[in-house]
């Protein structure tokens, strides 16, 4: 009797948990699917399901030069910010990863703090400082601002990769007479490269998608894609934005698939 009771009890538990999990997964994935479907509408509104299907909004997107301009700016800033983040972040990660010193832990907290502090407050602060020293907003100020909020991803992923590195490998290399630079190039770098790439990828995506910092540090000449999209949506619900969203969703899926192959992204983010 008690065995049977326990089974029913176990079944009720597993059923509830599984049902909630599936609902949650559907809630996570559904919005992207909805946008993809709506972007192929033949109508003028965002009605779901669409009255018919066509590629007209993708054709419209082809001619939307304002969006092209903003996308180009966003891409350039994201590439520079990612490059700068990798250069500064990997060096810093090497310094702080194996150190137990208080200074290393303090620096680690400092480098991670942009992740929790409201980025909008930092954007305003950066604008105030740049205007105080007389530096006008430009692609340069955008790259600097984006680097501050993107570098934590590079530091975190590189530190995690370094933590998994066997110290004995470095010792053996040194015992066998290799210089530190040689050991770094031939042993350390190849082993931590997937971690660096994963961090750089997340940094790039978060720069490309950044709103709070760009909001203060750009002007009409340096329009950024997420802000252009946001302002278009505030005005009217444009179906062209749905087509652009479709492009961005497909690009993201493709990039994540590549990154999963190259760096094992999914395991990296759950360890």
């Amino acid at each position: 009797m008690s065995g049977r009771k326990r089974t029913l009890e176990a079944i009720s538990f597993e059923l509830v948990m599984t049902v909630i999990a599936v609902i949650a997964l559907v809630i996570i994935i559904a919005p992207s699917l909805v946008v993809l479907i709506v972007s192929f509408t033949s109508g003028f509104s965002l009605r779901f399901p669409p009255p018919g299907y066509s590629l007209r909004w993708y054709v419209e997107l082809w001619n939307a030069w304002q969006l092209h301009f903003a996308a180009k700016n966003s891409l350039i800033v994201a590439l520079w910010a990612t490059g700068l983040s990798v250069g500064l972040g990997v060096a810093a990660a090497l310094a702080i990863s194996r150190s137990r010193a208080l200074s290393a832990r303090l620096l680690d907290s400092l480098f991670m703090s942009p992740l929790v502090l409201p980025a909008l407050a930092f954007g305003l602060a950066a604008l105030m400082l740049f205007s105080l020293v007389g530096l006008p907003v430009s692609p340069l100020t955008l790259v600097i601002g984006h680097t501050v909020v993107c570098v934590p991803y590079v530091v975190r992923n590189t530190v995690a990769a370094l933590a998994q590195l066997e110290p004995t490998l470095l010792e053996s290399s040194a015992v066998l007479g290799a210089s530190r630079l040689y050991t770094f190039r031939r042993i350390v770098l190849p082993l931590i490269r997937p971690g660096i790439i994963a961090g750089a990828f997340i940094a790039f995506m978060s720069s490309f998608d950044n709103v709070p910092v760009s909001l203060f540090l750009r002007d009409a000449a340096t329009d950024m894609l997420p802000i252009r999209m946001w302002q278009d949506l505030e005005g009217k619900l444009d179906v062209t934005i749905a087509a652009l969203s479709g492009v961005l969703i497909i690009a993201t899926v493709a990039l994540v698939a590549i990154m999963e192959r190259v760096t094992g992204l999914s395991r990296r983010l759950t360890n």
């Binding site: 994935i29 919005p31 992207s32 909805v34 934005i241 749905a242 993201t252 994540v256």
Partner: peptide
Amino acid sequence: TIIILIVLLPLLTSVVVRTFAWIVI
């Protein structure tokens, strides 16, 4: 892997796109 990728995708999709989807819904 499928679950992780489902969870991960929205994290990397543009926040304007994700929000836009909710306007449609």
